[in-house]
Design a protein around this nucleic acid. Structure first.
Lengths: 144, 144
DNA sequence: TTTATATGTTACACATACTGTAACAATTGG
DNA sequence: CCAATTGTTACAGTATGTGTAACATATAAA
């Protein structure tokens, strides 16, 4: 999955969890809402479980539960949980011996790309799950 | 090539053209400087020829020539010439019939990702080839 | 204790994309 | 005509992504 598709799917899952909180939602249920295969949902949500955005329970009547108030969940947090690789990273081939010049250019672009990455994440950190719920006229039953 | 690698290679090529202007530089010469295969250089620079950043001449003593003053070439321009796909684009699968809900979410994320894209390009539009030359203590023989 | 249901992870076949290189037509200057 | 060069196509080999299935582990309820 591309970074954007992952973020999209993650947000849709979290929106569903916010709406149905605190009833645990199985990957099968989320799959029905989002149209994504349940196995992928599980894989994606497992990252957010590790990041503590979501908790999970196995067994009968188990599933995934939102772990934080929608107001306190930013897109940036979600993004960081599910994405290992940065959107704008430098992956110049390491196969060949690099000249001094090449190394210097690498450094320059690494700096530039991390600046860009910071801007992306700063933009994302200003948008919360609550904002998205509001945008779609959805309400959350999450009680702090 | 990833977007970042393409940008990196393009800039290195343009830096070389700025330094050697107005002598045409062949893909073989640029390849020696950047360590990238000449065929890739040609492919990448052909986009910038179409975008008018660079002009090219075939035949003996031909090659690529910088077409604009380094001060007037921004990273954003280079990026747009060589990159068809946007860095942060939504490629949700179109295979399955989309629900109304899915379409609405798509629209929301398309908007968000294009906002992010604008920020990326705005950052890039503030950096010129001349800035990069200066950063590496290189001079250009480009005469306006 | 047994059964049903979930997560979390692994596996796998298939498809798609990327990579590095070669080849070659078209073009140009000498 | 010849040598050099761009611009494009081709291609084999590799890597990556995709969709799905399978299953060990865990849990709650009967």
């Amino acid at each position: 999955m591309s970074a954007s598709t992952k973020l999209y799917t993650a947000v849709r899952s979290l929106v569903h969890l916010a709406e149905t909180h605190p009833a645990p939602q199985s990957s099968a249920q989320i799959s029905e809402v989002t149209g994504i295969h349940s196995s992928k949902i599980r894989k994606l949500l497992s990252f957010m479980v590790k990041g503590n955005l979501v908790s999970s329970e196995k067994g009968n009547n188990g599933g995934f539960i939102l772990n934080k108030a929608p107001k306190q969940i930013t897109l940036q947090e979600i993004y960081c949980d599910i994405e290992d690789r940065k959107a704008f990273h430098l992956d110049v081939s390491q196969k060949y011996k690099k000249s001094k010049e090449t190394e210097d250019f690498n450094k320059y672009f690494l700096g530039l790309f991390s600046d860009i990455q910071i801007q992306i994440e700063s933009k994302m950190s200003k948008i919360t799950l609550a904002d998205i719920l509001k945008n779609f006229n959805k309400t959350t039953s999450f009680k702090k």
